[in-house]
Every structure is written in structure tokens, then in C-alpha cells.
Design a binder for these strands. Structure first.
Length: 280
DNA sequence: AACCAGGGGACTC
DNA sequence: GAGTCCCATGGT
């Protein structure tokens, strides 16, 4: 077991970060969270300002949970009205995880028009069926399937993972990624709009999925993914006197209001969606 | 531009 | 147990 002591001026909330719906592979058992990242099983818990974990080293944990980001500075940058102020106050410590790009891409293709429990189920089935077994004491865990393993499996086998019509999108995209060595690095080097264009060319990747992959997989924090909840919140809370019909208008307004870390604003709003929409 | 298919789980009533 | 909704996309 290793530990990290969080500095008092850098808030972090492990439970919020892992349960807000940005990642789908972590499982909670009381205070402990277990997840497979890459090909290792990570177990982690938080007690106040202390993180205790196994399966990874300190630099990895810092990077994965974006602990190297100056959260108070980020939040100060998006704290531009009373709604955001309250949302930040209620969810302080939520950080955007750095997800492996391929896993992020495949996960969000599976996430289209589905609820979070359903998405978790699919990802879990896909990993059990097409991932590699990863040892973790008594528990059996599975790594996320490689592009090759999804590209080469039978369509029927994919469908048995409850991915429905997304099966062909997943297989097509997996094939393209599998046949493009260095894909990740090449996307990383592109500008925001060029990277977005590349992602949009993949099957099953529309604007929402592309923006999620840019945000969670490539740390493009200006990305402002618009799902049904964010659309509702933006129309209800920021829509007076504005045309907010098309996706780009809402995403554009998000970037206009919240700036370079609009993605953080999006994730805080999403995390707080129930309170915001029942309150007003 | 405006439809529709596609599918499953969670939640409401 | 029916009805509705969900971190939408692709095809017509």
C-alpha cells in the first residue's frame, strides 16, 4: 500500500470523481474503489486528505486523477455566476480523470442514449468477454478490450454484451484504430477542431461522443459535451433571450461563459443535474 | 429538415 | 406491467 497526502489547498473528492458518470469501470465496496486501468488493478480509498492505494505508483495516481491540476484556480475560472458558485460549493473536489483514449472512445460509443447503470453493465460485459484476465488477489478482473480484440470478434458476440445497434459502430471503429498505429499520439498533436474532425469521422461518434473523448481522453478542457441534461440546464438557466436549438449553439455558449475550462463546468453541472433541475 | 430504428435497464405510476 | 427516459448516431 502506498499513500499520497493531499495538500490542504488542493481539494479532491474520490467518491464524487469516480461516481459522477465520467468513468464506467470502477466498483465501490464500502470505502474502497477497485478499477482496472490499463492492465493493472488499482484499489484506492480516501480518508480526509490521505489517499491509500495499491496497484499503481504515485505519479500514475496523480496523473490519472488530475491531482497535478490546480483545482481552485480552475474553479475560480468557471465560477462566473450564482448557479455555478453553488454547484462548485456542493461538488468541490470533483476532478476530471485522464482516461486512456481508446477505452474512453469505445466507452462513449457504448454510452449513446443509455443510462449510466446500463453503460456500466455493457462495459463490464465487454471486458469480461474480450479483455484479458488481470490478477488481483482473490478477485478476478478484466482489462478493457484492445482495439484488435473488438475488431476481430464476431458481431453476434458483441451483441451478447447488450450493446445493441452500437455493435457495428464499435467493431468498425475498433478496426480503424487497430489499423492505425500511433493514432493516439497523432490525435494528441492536432488542434481542437482537427482532432474533433478526426473523431467525428469514426462510426458511432457524433458531436457529443467526440466532445467527451476530447475532454476525458485527450484533456481538451475547453470541450463542452452537450447531453440531454446539459441541454436542459443550459436552456433553463442560460437560455433567456438566446437561440439554443442546435448542439453547436449550446456548446459554444458553454465555452463563451466558462472559458478554457468549460469542460470542468460541464462536469460540475452534470454531476449536480438533479439538484439544479428540481430546484428551478 | 424531419423523421425513425435500435435496445435495455432503471425509474415512475 | 405499461410508460418514459437515458452522457445520441446514422440512415432515409
Amino acid at each position: 500500500m502506498k499513500t499520497i497526502t493531499l495538500p490542504p489547498d488542493q481539494p479532491f473528492d474520490l467518491h464524487l470523481t469516480l461516481s459522477c458518470g465520467q468513468v464506467f469501470r470502477w466498483v465501490r465496496d464500502c470505502d474502497w474503489w477497485t478499477g482496472v486501468v490499463g492492465d493493472t488493478v488499482v484499489r484506492i480509498r480516501q480518508d480526509g486528505n490521505r489517499l491509500t492505494f495499491s496497484g499503481a505508483d504515485r505519479p500514475f495516481i496523480r496523473e490519472y486523477f488530475h491531482l497535478d491540476g490546480d483545482l481552485p484556480a480552475i474553479l475560480a475560472g468557471i465560477d462566473c455566476d450564482t448557479l455555478m458558485h453553488e454547484t462548485i460549493r456542493k461538488n468541490q473536489g470533483l476532478r476530471i480523470i485522464r482516461q486512456p483514449p481508446w477505452e474512453c472512445l469505445a466507452s462513449y460509443i457504448c454510452a449513446t442514449y443509455a443510462n449510466i447503470p446500463g453503460i456500466k453493465k455493457r462495459i463490464s460485459l465487454l471486458s469480461e468477454k474480450f479483455g484479458e484476465q488481470v490478477s488481483s488477489g482473490s478477485e478476478t478482473c478484466y482489462s478493457f478490450p484492445t482495439p484488435d480484440s473488438l475488431a476481430e470478434c464476431l458481431p453476434g458476440d458483441l451483441r451478447s454484451c447488450s450493446v445493441g445497434y452500437r455493435a457495428s459502430f464499435l467493431a468498425d471503429t475498433a478496426r480503424i484504430i487497430a489499423d492505425s498505429p500511433g493514432w493516439e499520439e497523432s490525435v494528441r498533436e492536432l488542434s481542437f477542431s482537427d482532432a474533433r474532425r478526426v473523431l467525428l469521422s469514426l462510426k458511432g461518434v457524433g458531436k457529443k461522443v467526440a466532445d467527451c473523448v476530447l475532454l476525458f481522453g485527450f484533456q481538451r478542457y475547453e470541450s463542452f459535451p452537450v447531453d440531454v441534461w446539459i441541454e436542459r440546464i443550459m436552456k433553463h438557466c442560460y437560455g433567456s433571450g438566446r437561440e439554443l436549438k442546435r448542439y453547436e449553439e449550446i456548446a459554444g455558449l458553454g465555452r463563451e461563459l466558462f472559458g478554457a475550462y468549460a469542460g470542468y463546468a460541464q462536469e460540475y453541472l452534470f454531476c449536480d443535474r438533479e439538484r439544479i433541475m428540481t430546484g428551478c
